[in-house]
């Protein structure tokens, strides 16, 4: 496996919405590099034709029936929010671009 680069660390931090200072980036580069080097040992195994495990349990079709069971009071829904106007959860203005 190719070695993880500083650019990878920065790209992944962007995906994960984390902001890292230079020191943190360097530290993560080293630590992630070591862990990824360790997990490379999986490549010793030939897994061609092995079905990946999706679920440890062999069950399927677990559904709920289409019944309305109720909702939270709005006050309870908003209670833990850092910022609301009593109706909406508030966030800084969302711009058109994502």
């Amino acid at each position: 496996m190719a070695r993880i680069t500083l650019e990878d660390v920065e790209y992944v931090a962007g995906l994960a919405q984390l902001t890292l200072d230079d020191q943190a980036k360097q530290r993560l580069l080293k630590e992630m590099g070591e862990i990824l080097a360790y997990v490379d040992k999986l490549n010793e195994l030939d897994t061609d034709g092995i079905e990946p495990m999706m679920h440890v349990l062999d069950i399927s079709n677990v559904f709920r029936e289409d019944v309305v069971t109720g909702s939270l009071d709005r006050d309870a829904a908003l209670r833990n929010a850092p910022k609301t106007d009593g109706e909406y959860f508030l966030v800084p203005r969302i711009l058109d671009t994502e």
Binding site: A24, L28, L42, T47, I50
Partner: peptide, 29 residues
Amino acid sequence: QRRIMLGTYVLSSGYYDAYYLKAQKVRAL
């Protein structure tokens, strides 16, 4: 944060098969 970074990396474009899928196969073993 370290684990979020690691997990995001192994799922990110181009690495899914090499890491996540491979791991789920070995998990089956």
